[in-house]
Design a protein around this nucleic acid. Sequence first.
DNA 1: TCTCCTGTTTCATATAGAGCAACGATCGCA
DNA 2: TGCGATCGTTGCTCTATATGAAACAGGAGA
Lengths: 259, 259
Amino acid sequence: MLALKKEEESHLSSVKNALRILRSFTMDEPEKKISDLSTALGLNKSTVSRTMATLASEGFVYKDPETKKYRLGLSILSLSGIVNSNMDVYRESQPILNKLVESIGETAHISVMDNLEVIYLQKVECNHPVRFLTHVGRRNPLYCTSSGKVLLAYSNENTIETVIKKGLQSFTKNTITDPQKLRTHLKNIKENGFAYSIEEFLEGVNSIAAPVYDYKGRVIAAISVVGPKQRIQQHKVQGIAKKVVSAGREISTRMGYWK
Amino acid sequence: MLALKKEEESHLSSVKNALRILRSFTMDEPEKKISDLSTALGLNKSTVSRTMATLASEGFVYKDPETKKYRLGLSILSLSGIVNSNMDVYRESQPILNKLVESIGETAHISVMDNLEVIYLQKVECNHPVRFLTHVGRRNPLYCTSSGKVLLAYSNENTIETVIKKGLQSFTKNTITDPQKLRTHLKNIKENGFAYSIEEFLEGVNSIAAPVYDYKGRVIAAISVVGPKQRIQQHKVQGIAKKVVSAGREISTRMGYWK
DNA sequence: TCTCCTGTTTCATATAGAGCAACGATCGCA
DNA sequence: TGCGATCGTTGCTCTATATGAAACAGGAGA
């Protein structure tokens, strides 16, 4: 083992390979062949083959006997149920999320920060047929989604600077890519108590988000509504934000926050 | 490596350890300490410690810095989103499940067979405050839940016999534990086109399930409603079953089945 | 302060996993 | 039908690496 960072010295390489393989599955590429994985991850074919056999034996991947392609298995689904049930926010937010969707008529999410990204824990869809923009477990950037900006705004300086240092990639013409602009933008969000994104991440998609507090008054999650710009229009933002903020407060109260 | 079954010969032991550790987390024990895992799985403390460090580095577990206990991480949630989006049934069933819940007023599920168990893919809750009997990803026996019995009834002889051979454990006084009784019971289910469980698995809990077909006419999933016996009464079974069967047909149609 | 119980790290050793290459199986195309 | 090309699996060898025992380092609690 030559020249590994201190942190990684004690990591088991074959386990790491297995986990990297699992994480390489995406929404766009939910099926993988051995050789694809081999080249993509720079691992030997036989290594991948044996790793996949092990993953399959524990139900983490499923091998289509016909095409010989692998998909993620249902063991993962079993584990995800445990992840959720273990998160207080998840438990408390379901009914409030439902009410919010009914009241506004747009899809709503609960999300948290993980590994300098927003990850969506929960989703309640509206009746409109525009769907599948997001999904539970999806990760998005912190600096150009409304939920991400809320989570970032209420985090510490350090986190903000790390995000900036990683680079502010431009997704649309509205994405905030200037560090100084972002800093003041985030301060405004804290003052207003909510954030909105007008096509900052996806063309034609707007969103509004508010913080969720825990019993210590720390922001632990964000609640947000998303929709096409035709329905979430700029002049409606204030009105919608009021409802989102109040829904966030309601969950916070259930989490033991009061103020 | 001495005396391993052929199948397991080519499995990577350290990866297998990691996966076994992940699967050892349950709804009842969502938090684990190193030493617990060590004794529970018969692995050396240091092995577990290093494995957990690796799992944590890829976000599969999260280490509470205060208590030093581990919980499952959000990487798993990300993967579960991909599992779902990859399953046709999942996509098609959401709105129909909603309608069913509205019409009957009880919680409904979509489930499939995996590893000789029922696993719940999707859940839509009713408004009644009796909750958390099941959750997405939960696994239950095939032979004493309505969804399990549907899936089993429409599977092949071989599967049925394997389940019987594994043993029919009694959960309540109504659990079918006699192999011959189960065989004829399953035949009846196929004739009726639906299954019901009157407190066969949990005291006080009844359920009704119907099959979901794919485009080839194979049963690939079950749709079911569950509720307390006070609400799902025996004399109501036929009426509810009609609605469940029809919902199942509706999903089947969307899956390309027609007949 | 002194135990007891954690989890992490060190170190030596055995071994398990990686790489290579050869083998079948399957596919595509002529 | 036959011929390459591609792909996944499997022996085999060798070394990198995962393992276990024991020592170490922190807490927690008495």
